[in-house]
Design a protein around this nucleic acid. Structure first.
Length: 493
RNA sequence: GGCGGCAUAGCCAAGUGGUUAAGGCAGCGGUCUGCAAAACCGUUAUUCAUCGGUUCGAAUCCGAUUGCCGCCUCCA
């Protein structure tokens, strides 16, 4: 079995073979640290987090690099407006970014370099491009001469004439050709600067990724990723810079994630239709947000709304309800002798084997361009299987059941570890969910508990009328009661 | 204006040439329950935007049409 990945460069799904056997170098473009992250940033982070985890699960040693852009017009503008140093602004938002990603369960990259740590490397790279005749100086600015790089447009599927004909390119007297882009800009008053052979200046946006990827991963590496809005011009320009300097292919696979949309429109700062990660995590469990994203393929768009999040929450509830039941049954397993699967027969054997097959089916789905929706579908299948097994009339906790349910818990944890799902304790999950939902709707937990206690007394006296009244009162507040032999529990719809 | 993507049930969403079109949410019928909830069983697309074409065979390939979206300016 081999992994297939859709490559933006070839526009085809290709079999993934790393450059060095058993090792993967991956670079994903991170954020510009000038504001808090929104759900769109979260999606990209979750996508590449899952890709990293899956490659590691499949036995690869992955070096994952995700950069921070900490020098840029927007950061400078903000710093000047607040009268602060740019590093103060960028460090603040890098810290916030890290908090958000940690909260979402996104593993930290192997390396998270900042652009400003690599200025010397950028200058070196620009010098090579100048020497290669691919760049030119104009009044302390350095521009990349796009026409000189054959292959410009190969990633985004464009050609120069068409783009120029399409107008909408900015007028800049210093550029020899409209699509040339800045590698280095002479610093103006009030802007940060670094010494360079061309005077005091600061780097252009694209150059940082070329040097940082090379520094950590070498001239050629396996996977380069980012949001699909980076395909042009950012990634196209990265290719021009890196390949123009080294003469070698930059990245072998280009992977781009689709957008988060709001009412069919791209979520973005400029449209103002964004939700910050912090706001969303106040209202939803992080795994609900991940499930919402991973139930769509990473390449396609995903429409963000309170309805779609609520739907994901219901799905998550299904998983955790099963996990809770499994945990409950397993708690009694200490009393039984340990049996091995050879002891199983008939239906027990059949169900054990079906449950045990989850990781293989999971791999089958994930090997096919990280098809998380299909993979999650298989987990749902397994959940139904487990629930069916436990709801059989003759079901009781037995040595055989313990073996089967233990396996069930393990396979779900195994695939959950890759998806970053099902990792919470089920009781904690429901407790958190209840508190979160109660808070969201302004419900008083103590009052609810009081009513439930009153209902318990009524039920004990077989006063069904009063018991149902209380049920109805709570139902109006979307509170669903569940009576079990152990007592009554509740959840919010 | 140039380039590109998408269109599958009430909603979300897999499937991209060949057995009964995954899965989730919602709905309906049943089992269970004092009544419920959860869970389970059954059920909900003879059909994949529309119209043509290729093929023994297409949701899947090709063309046209319609609609939605994205990139071309910072963007995950």
């Amino acid at each position: 079995m081999s992994i297939k990945i859709y490559n933006t460069l070839s526009k085809k799904k290709e079999t993934f073979e790393p450059l060095v056997e058993g090792q993967v170098g991956m670079y994903a473009c991170g954020i510009t640290a000038y504001d808090v992250c929104h759900v769109g940033h979260a999606r990209s982070a979750v996508v590449f987090d899952v890709i990293t985890r899956y490659l590691r699960y499949r036995g690869y040693h992955v070096t994952y690099v995700k950069n921070f852009t900490d020098v840029d017009d927007k950061i400078i503008t903000k710093a000047n407006a607040e009268g602060k140093a740019i590093s103060e602004i960028s460090e603040r938002y890098i810290r916030e970014h890290d908090e958000d990603m940690d909260a979402l369960g996104v593993a930290r990259p192997t390396w998270a370099p900042r652009a400003t740590e690599h200025i010397a490397g950028m200058i070196k790279l620009i010098n090579i491009l100048l020497a290669n005749g691919l760049a030119y100086e104009a009044d302390g600015d350095i521009y990349y001469a796009v026409e000189k790089f054959k292959g410009y447009g190969k990633l985004s599927g464009r050609n120069l004439e068409e783009m120029v004909a399409g107008a909408r390119v900015d007028v800049n007297e210093k550029k020899r050709y409209p699509l040339d882009f800045a590698l280095w800009k002479a610093s103006k008053e009030g802007e940060p600067w670094w010494e360079s052979p061309w005077g005091k200046g600061r780097p252009g946006w694209h150059i940082e990724c070329s040097i940082m990827s090379q520094n950590f991963l070498g001239d050629t590496f396996d996977i380069h990723g980012g949001g699909e809005d980076l395909i042009f011009p950012h990634h196209e320009n990265e290719i021009a810079q890196s390949e123009g300097a080294t003469g070698k292919q930059l990245a072998r696979f280009w992977v781009h994630n689709g957008f988060v949309k709001v009412s069919s429109e791209k979520m973005s700062k400029s449209l103002g239709n964004f939700f910050t990660i912090k706001d969303i995590l106040k209202n939803y469990h992080p795994e609900v947000v991940r499930l919402f994203m991973l139930q769509s393929h990473y390449k396609g768009p995903v429409d963000f709304s309170s309805e779609s999040l609520a739907e994901a929450r219901m799905g998550m509830e299904r998983f955790y309800a099963t996990l809770k039941a499994v945990k409950g049954a397993l708690a009694a397993c200490g009393d039984f002798p340990v049996v091995t699967m050879e002891r199983l027969s008939g239906k027990d054997k059949d169900i054990f084997e079906k449950i045990a097959s989850l990781p293989d089916r999971f791999k089958e789905a994930m090997d096919d361009d990280f098809n998380t929706p299909r993979a999650i579908g298989y987990v749902f299948d397994t959940v139904r299987l487990i629930n069916g097994y436990m709801s059989e009339e003759k079901f009781s906790v037995s040595a055989e059941a313990c073996l089967i349910l233990d396996k069930a818990g393990r396979v779900i944890a195994e695939v959950g570890g890759v998806l970053g799902l099902f990792l919470d304790d089920p009781d904690d999950y429901f407790m958190q969910d209840r508190d979160r939902e109660a808070g969201k709707r302004g419900l008083d937990v103590h009052e609810i508990d009081r009513l439930i206690e009153e209902r318990r007394a009524a039920r004990l006296a077989k006063d069904w009328k009063r018991a149902d009244e209380i049920r109805n009162v709570l139902a109006e507040k979307k509170i669903i009661l569940k009576d079990t032999p152990a007592g009554t529990s509740w959840r919010i719809e």
